[in-house]
Design a protein around this nucleic acid. Structure first.
Lengths: 220, 220
DNA sequence: TCTTGTTGTTGACGATCCGCCAACAAGCAC
DNA sequence: GTGCTTGTTGGCGGATCGTCAACAACAAGA
């Protein structure tokens, strides 16, 4: 009998880095940043806490590594031929994207959830409420409060539109990459499209069950 | 000579709460959550740190109060008459909203910046890069890579579209408020509108100066 | 097999931050 | 001036994080 069982295994730097990153990714995906201590990550990975700093520096750096890796979604290779009419190409693109997203569902949601991984659930809830209020207000604004039936789905679509509003205003005010006129154009035409063409189609699908019987035929 | 100058002033609870909230709002607007210590806020307000806990409980609670207050944008009263055609009403709504946003500019940006106040600049940068990559990929996807001239503005508009994509997918996958078909409809028609009708108008404005000479006439 | 060197890994120390609470004092009432 | 109410302070204890010197796993040489 020789060599007592080693108390810990010695790994290649890249190997160890990878392992720690895996654990960190899992934990940051479950809880907000502040509620994941480096001690937790170290325990999860079965290493000393100091090793995290040795490989990643600050806790924040490790976090940024995790965010970056999550944003690099796996299969982002184009596999859609660019043939046919513009509408066909657009529809195929969206189709493909929805498929991709559907498979990576949970991960994707964690990534786009307001502001990266580990977003605070309480903060998200507050933002969600404000978004919903804004959506209702928009519907009122346009005098579309009558149809109370599928009101929830109308609001859902307007809430989605809210995402367009936010991002385009950011382009305009913060980055200056869009002029006010261009922002106006984008938001007006989009809202008009939604209100005039898409919301009516929503009503047609009625509300029975969640079994929308395949009706992707657009207006014209 | 009597009564030495008091070392601190005694305020009404509501008054003090307000004052602390003001300071907290300012600081959280400048730096991310983790980089604002309760000590900073207390120092800014000229009070003892313990007083924050007395009035707001946890640091997180104070933060949520700040977020909630920022989301309750000041002038959100309807002041736009609902007369005229649908297009007119839509354009007037957008117009009014852009005006409102423009006045509260900085505050509004802080609010909608990825996930509430105090979002981490580094995280935002990483997300911004990923969004830009996605936008470029979308343009490639549709075979619109030719016009390199105002490519930056095209990408800006597609990046905005990315906001719509994110929020609608969240409605679909996370909240289940939209079916896949409805999501597909919304995203396809919107993208088609942008690519077919709006991007060409963008090209027409050329790139000279930032002085877009008023041209809000939409396609038809 | 023993020895030696490399370096991946550990464990603890100091600094910082936060929640809590008993003691203090500002200002009003008498 | 005296006493009471309560807004406010300051420090204690626990938890987290960054750093670093010492340790040990493992391969290479004798």
């Amino acid at each position: 009998m020789s060599a007592l069982a080693p108390r810990w295994k010695r790994l290649e730097p890249d190997e160890r880095r990878q392992q720690i990153l895996d654990c960190a990714m899992r934990l940051f995906g479950e809880r907000p940043y502040a509620e994941v201590s480096t001690t937790d990550i170290a325990k999860e990975a079965g290493v000393a806490r100091g090793l995290l700093n040795h490989y990643f520096g600050q806790k924040r750096d490790l976090y940024l590594k995790v965010v970056k890796r999550m944003l690099l979604m796996p299969g982002i290779e184009k596999s859609v031929p660019m043939t046919g009419t513009l509408r066909e190409r657009v529809e195929r693109s969206v189709e493909w994207y929805l498929d991709t997203v559907a498979t990576h569902g949970k991960t994707y949601l964690a990534v786009i959830g307001s502001g990266g991984i580990g977003a605070d659930p309480d903060v998200e809830r507050i933002i969600a409420e404000a978004d919903d209020v804004a959506a209702s207000r928009t519907l009122e604004f346009l005098g579309l409060k009558a149809e109370v039936g599928n009101d929830s789905r109308q609001r859902a679509m307007i809430r989605s539109y809210g995402g367009l509003v936010k991002s385009s205003i950011r382009e305009w005010l913060r980055d200056g990459t869009l002029s006010r006129e261009e922002t106006h154009l984008l938001l007006s035409e989009s809202l008009l499209l939604i209100v005039r063409d898409l919301l009516p189609q929503l009503a047609r699908t009625a509300t029975p069950g969640r079994a929308t019987p395949a009706k992707p035929r657009p207006p014209k």
